[in-house]
């Protein structure tokens, strides 16, 4: 685990550093700008989906779905980050405690 933490930390730091060392003309390339802008959208959306519906390699619908739904409502109401996460966790914990959803 420590090795992967070290490699990932070093790697993300080098990514930051590279930007200050690379020539500016890279910025002029539309496809590069597009791709670095779209990558987080792709990965974060996929992470939302997988972390909500996957249990190992099985597709599973449980109380996490409700938590995510509540998070969407909170975001639509422009709630701050922490509130979004708190209400998602709390609503999930609540329906589990009530025994309504696993």
């Amino acid at each position: 685990m420590w090795a992967s933490i070290l490699i990932a930390s070093l790697g993300t730091y080098v990514e930051k550093l590279l930007g200050y060392l690379l020539p500016q003309r890279i910025l002029k390339r539309e496809s590069v700008r597009r791709m670095t802008g779209l990558l987080p959208v792709s990965l974060l959306a996929a992470l939302v989906a997988v972390q909500t519906f996957a249990s190992d390699q099985a597709f599973l619908i449980d109380a996490r779905v409700l938590g995510l739904g509540v998070a969407v409502v909170a975001l639509l109401l422009r709630a701050p980050f922490l509130v979004v996460i708190l209400v998602a966790a709390a609503s999930t914990a609540l329906v589990r405690w009530l025994g309504w959803m696993p």
Partner: peptide, 25 residues
């Protein structure tokens, strides 16, 4: 697993290179 965790973190961090490129000047 560790390898996929590292690669995912690096892909997400790629945007920081772009930030640094715009911040340089």
């Amino acid at each position: 697993g560790a390898v996929i965790a590292v690669v995912t973190a690096l892909l997400l961090g790629a945007r920081n290179s772009l930030y640094a490129l715009s911040l340089g000047p």
